[in-house]
Simulated assay, not measured.
Amino acid sequence: MKPEDLLSDDFLKQFKTGQQLNDFLGQIQKRAIEKMLEGQLDGYLGYGMNEQSKSINTRNGYGKKKIKTHYGESEIQVPRDRDASFNPMIVPKRESMVEGIEEVIVSLYAKGMSISDIEEQIMDVYKFEVSTATISRITSRVAEDIVAWQNRPLEPVYLIVRMDGIVFKIRENSKVINKTV
């Protein structure tokens, strides 16, 4: 499935209200942030999840953190290391606001950006440098999650309401306005 297919009319018709769409986008953002954090920890520790480590500093589970974004407040799982020296760049320690992450997620999902473009985007938005290896790990984690989401079982029936109308120009209070009937 291509990113442009994801935003097709058929896909968007499953949402009955703007709030349902907003909640859905918030869930996607939450999952993407968590996958980015996991990829960043992979780069920081130098090995992926379920791989053997020769380092003293290893993974140490997850911590919960409430963040506020454009889509509202949500609770995310932040990966930890044993030394507690891992400082996430996307959601820094002791901060709860995620500013501009929507642009990065949209760039990662919709545009199919190259690693150098993503690196520039992060530099523009967050004002810090991230290695290309870290970006590669982050994007591969997010891509794995996208494939899993695309292969999820679908509901057997989706209700669709189709509405049609005709637009007339009507004079109201000395102004001509459009009214849909």
Rank of each mutant, 00 (worst) to 15 (best):
M1D: 07
M1F: 09
P3H: 03
P3E: 03
P3L: 05
E4G: 04
L7A: 10
L12Y: 00
K16I: 12
Q19E: 15
Q20H: 02
Q20C: 04
Q20A: 12
Q20I: 02
L21T: 03
N22E: 13
N22A: 14
F24N: 06
F24A: 15
L25D: 02
L25A: 10
Q27F: 07
Q29N: 05
Q29K: 04
R31H: 10
A32M: 11
I33K: 03
M36R: 01
M36I: 15
L37M: 12
G39C: 05
G39N: 00
L41A: 02
L41F: 01
G46E: 01
Y47S: 01
M49I: 15
N50E: 07
E51V: 02
E51S: 06
K54V: 11
N57A: 07
T58Q: 15
R59L: 01
N60I: 07
N60P: 08
N60V: 07
G61C: 07
Y62G: 11
G63V: 10
K64V: 05
K64D: 09
K66L: 10
I67H: 00
K68P: 01
E75Y: 00
I76S: 05
V78S: 04
P79M: 04
R82G: 05
D83Q: 13
D83H: 12
F86A: 08
F86I: 09
N87C: 11
N87Q: 14
P88C: 03
P88F: 01
M89V: 15
I90P: 03
V91A: 15
P92G: 04
P92F: 00
R94I: 00
M97G: 09
E99M: 10
G100F: 01
I105K: 04
I105V: 12
S107Y: 06
A110Q: 11
K111C: 08
D117R: 09
I118F: 05
E119H: 08
E119Y: 02
M123T: 12
D124K: 13
V125G: 04
K127A: 11
V130R: 08
R137W: 00
I138E: 02
T139Y: 04
S140C: 05
A143L: 13
E144F: 06
E144G: 11
E144K: 14
D145F: 00
D145G: 06
A148P: 05
A148R: 15
W149Q: 10
W149R: 11
N151F: 05
L154D: 10
P156T: 06
P156Y: 00
P156C: 01
P156D: 11
V157F: 14
I160A: 09
V161E: 14
M163H: 10
D164W: 09
G165E: 03
F168A: 14
K169H: 07
I170N: 04
S174I: 07
V176M: 11
V176T: 14
